[in-house]
């Protein structure tokens, strides 16, 4: 199989380059892209990428495969490269540290900005705080985010304003806490999102929805935040 992979080591290279290679893949199995990376690394240990759980729950190996963001460990090669050539690049829009490894600092800072923890100032009861199954249901499709950054780095608004637009991943979590019946900081959370950038830079392009490896829908969550802001404003 023909593979083209983005290479860059800041100590060695002036600018990034695409390395072309030919790799024999074991027959009879539809490998995941991560398996291909591991085969490449066995041949050339210097190629750098993040990986860990290899089952799509830790969110380490978000990369760009043939132009599309996804997790290497749960993307079959046949799906990533239907025409036979696999092109691997780092997630777009974030500074490259080396090869397929990007600096996620900006992404994490946006996550931290939305107060990503439950706020409830009432003294906790001796047991758990009660929550009806219906209220708990509202967190589905939100709490499952693995912070892989596939969505935010597929979002043009995040490319343009990564320092000011929270981005789909952060906003999904912002709504996860707004939607939690146990959280009491709704007003403060909304006030912090009212500026022209944090939420309102979303243009509904929906790249986030199309690439999310967990099938989540940040655009819908952003819509709900807007509705909450509106109904609070009125």
């Amino acid at each position: 199989m023909k593979i083209s992979v983005y290479r860059f080591d800041p100590d060695e290279d002036e600018s990034p380059r695409m390395e072309e290679m030919e790799l024999d893949l074991p027959a009879g199995r539809d490998l995941m892209v991560l398996d291909v990376l591991e085969l490449m690394k066995a041949r050339d240990p210097s190629i750098a990428y993040r990986r860990s759980c290899r089952e799509g729950v830790c969110g380490s190996d978000g990369i760009n495969m043939n132009g599309r963001n996804g997790l290497a460990c749960i993307t079959p090669v046949s799906e990533a490269a239907p025409r036979g050539k696999l092109t691997l690049r780092p997630l777009p829009g974030l500074p490259v540290v080396r090869d397929l490894v990007v600096d996620m600092g900006q992404f994490y800072r946006q996550y931290e900005k939305i107060t990503p923890w439950l706020v409830n100032d009432t003294p906790p009861p001796a047991q758990e705080r009660l929550q009806t199954p219906e209220d708990r249901e509202k967190l589905n499709g939100l709490y499952e985010c693995i912070l892989c950054a596939c969505c935010s780095t597929a979002c043009p608004s995040f490319w343009w304003n990564p320092d000011k637009f929270v981005g789909p991943a952060g906003l999904l979590q912002a709504y996860r806490f707004l939607a939690d019946s146990r959280d009491t900081a709704t007003a403060e959370r909304l006030a912090a999102l009212e500026d022209p950038f944090s939420v309102f830079r979303c243009r509904g392009i929906m790249n986030c929805v199309s690439v999310c490896p967990k099938g989540l829908n940040p655009t819908r969550a952003i819509g709900k935040i807007r509705t909450m802001l509106l109904s609070q404003g009125i």
Partner: peptide, 16 residues
């Protein structure tokens, strides 16, 4: 610069 030049008070106002 960006805040002063924003037409509305807030993103919400702009949006509306």
């Amino acid at each position: 610069v960006t805040n002063v030049t924003s037409f509305g008070r807030s993103g919400l106002a702009d949006f509306v």
